[in-house]
Simulated scan of single mutants.
Amino acid sequence: MNKPFSLSQDERIKSRKQIDRLFKGGGAKAMSAYPLRVVYLTEPMGEDESTMAQMMVSVPKRYFKRAVKRNHVKRQVREAYRLNKHILHEALAKDEATDNRHKTSLCFIWTSEQLASTDTVAEKMRNLLTRIAERIAGNNKNTSAE
């Protein structure tokens, strides 16, 4: 397992197929905590997969024309995820304990024309990850009750 506060390459979405499943597959859910929006998809984990959650960040060019600002926002979002991903991993670990192994793909999308402080981004990230973890826990209760 990785160090608890690292964000390795395995934890990032790099596959075009995975991105297409996330946005075109139809099973994805979304939620917002301004200025962040997250689109996520939970699917069964394959035998050869080891990562429970993978993420990516998107900052549209229409909000920040300069790449410097887009990169700054991406850095803030990745850092906030790196420090708070344990919230999601705990919910997925409980899922795994019931032999119901799932992986979650997340895409964080910036939705504001304004830059935000790092503390604000971290707070919104905690909010989103907590809500996703609650939904995953709720889905586990529903599937185990059937």
Rank of each mutant, 00 (worst) to 15 (best):
N2W: 08
N2S: 12
K3N: 08
K3L: 09
P4K: 14
D10P: 06
E11I: 14
R12P: 05
R12V: 06
K17R: 13
Q18A: 14
D20I: 05
D20A: 05
D20P: 02
G25Y: 08
G26C: 05
G26K: 09
G26R: 06
G26Y: 08
K29Q: 13
M31K: 13
M31D: 06
S32D: 07
S32M: 09
Y34W: 06
P35C: 12
L36W: 07
T42Y: 04
E43F: 15
P44R: 06
P44V: 03
M45H: 05
G46I: 10
E47V: 12
E47A: 10
E47C: 02
D48H: 14
E49T: 15
S50C: 05
T51E: 13
M55E: 01
M55L: 09
M55K: 09
V57T: 04
V57L: 00
V59C: 02
Y63W: 07
K65A: 02
K65Q: 02
K69C: 07
R70Q: 03
N71Q: 04
N71R: 07
N71P: 06
H72Y: 14
Q76Y: 10
Q76N: 11
V77H: 11
V77G: 10
R78H: 09
E79A: 14
E79C: 11
A80E: 03
L83T: 14
L83F: 11
K85E: 03
K85F: 01
K85I: 02
L88S: 03
E90T: 14
A91V: 02
L92R: 08
L92V: 08
L92C: 04
K94G: 11
K94N: 12
A97P: 14
D99E: 13
R101C: 10
R101D: 05
R101S: 11
T104H: 00
C107I: 00
C107G: 00
I109V: 12
T111Y: 08
S112E: 01
S112P: 07
E113S: 13
T118S: 14
T120V: 15
T120N: 13
V121L: 03
V121P: 08
V121M: 04
A122H: 07
E123A: 15
K124Y: 11
R126I: 00
N127A: 01
N127H: 10
N127C: 05
L129C: 12
L129P: 15
T130V: 12
T130E: 08
I132S: 07
I132K: 11
A133G: 11
A133H: 10
E134G: 03
I136N: 13
A137P: 01
N142G: 02
N142C: 04
T143F: 03
T143I: 07
S144W: 00
E146L: 12
